[in-house]
Design a protein around this nucleic acid. Sequence first.
DNA 1: TAGATTGTTAATCGATTAACAATC
DNA 2: TAGATTGTTAATCGATTAACAATC
Lengths: 210, 210
Amino acid sequence: MEAKKVPAPTLRRLPKYLNYLKRMKENGNVTISASKVAEALDIQHTQVRKDFAYTGAEGVPKIGHQIDELIRCIETFLNWDNVTDAFLVGVGHLGGALLGYNGFQESGIKIVAAFDIPEKSGRNIGGVEVYGVEKFKQMVGRMKIKIGIITAPADHAQEIATMMVDSGIQAIWNFAPRKLDLPEEVIVENVDMYSSLALISHRLKKKFGK
Amino acid sequence: MEAKKVPAPTLRRLPKYLNYLKRMKENGNVTISASKVAEALDIQHTQVRKDFAYTGAEGVPKIGHQIDELIRCIETFLNWDNVTDAFLVGVGHLGGALLGYNGFQESGIKIVAAFDIPEKSGRNIGGVEVYGVEKFKQMVGRMKIKIGIITAPADHAQEIATMMVDSGIQAIWNFAPRKLDLPEEVIVENVDMYSSLALISHRLKKKFGK
DNA sequence: TAGATTGTTAATCGATTAACAATC
DNA sequence: TAGATTGTTAATCGATTAACAATC
């Protein structure tokens, strides 16, 4: 029962497989081979098999995997068969966009309350109530919230993150372009748009001469 | 003059350095050592030095780097000292958020027009006009646009991407969770929120037992 | 001078890819 | 049976880290 450590790149690929498998299922397919998944997503087939293996999925030579079972394995592995409640802090453009988007519920997360300065409280965006940030800690305790989402400006990110951890938050999904300094047991994932802009800019520059 | 190929991880770190350096400059610092940058951002100092070296920046033993010069080197290297115009397709929650956000201009990109179905055209969001998508190709040609941003639903992403490349777009910044099938000379960068959600979910599950 | 810092070369590490045996 | 496909073990590759010489 010694669980091998799962490489982060593997975890990042799993949602891509899931997405593709669900589409294939909708198209009426019942089984699928790792090779086909690999080709569709431009990944080495041997890599796909290794990734599948982490989730405990088993295939049958010459036939492949039952799509249903494979989907279930991946979802269970990611814990996407349960929905975990989350709080969001920073109801600006991006925060509002996340609140208005319901797609995350299929990916194990549901934003159940949002927070910002008192002037913004009382609103309801996409069915989610906005509260003054002073209520954060108390509500985290009461609702046993584990995930915090930061969509505030970079200047406030550290302060908010510290407040979140203080309140009992265990994992932070950070959209602010700022390195967060937190105890190492806190799970932090950054969505960094600037890093991909850097790649685009640099490659375009190379492609078209300086 | 043989330019070594720059690792993608290096390119992704450069904006983080830039961000930190600009803050240090605002705080009144004139010089900075790679070691200090490394510590602040939790990166090995030797890694920071290698990354800096790619940009052509040179430091002085015992003193470090001139912050101004370092910033300039990184910006030039990324081509962030020029602003490249971009078109966005898909004015939903996320698209609207990007339009309302002006911070990208400091990162070499400016959204100058948005596109969606005709019913959404005519609006103005964050100072950017929304057009019917049928005008895309003509306007790309006229305005010599190179960068396309996809913030449409996943179902339409491939179709839009193909249309973009058809129109002459050279680089695509894709926010839709769908693998795009395009000629390999087209530069594609995906912003994949689900991949980071996968990491959070899986780590939380491990931390709190299944 | 001594020591902080740079920048390069070598060693390590981990992920990807290739090779191949097993099996339905 | 033959061949497609699985799944594992070994080889490769590239990024990170460590070691160290150079220098102000």
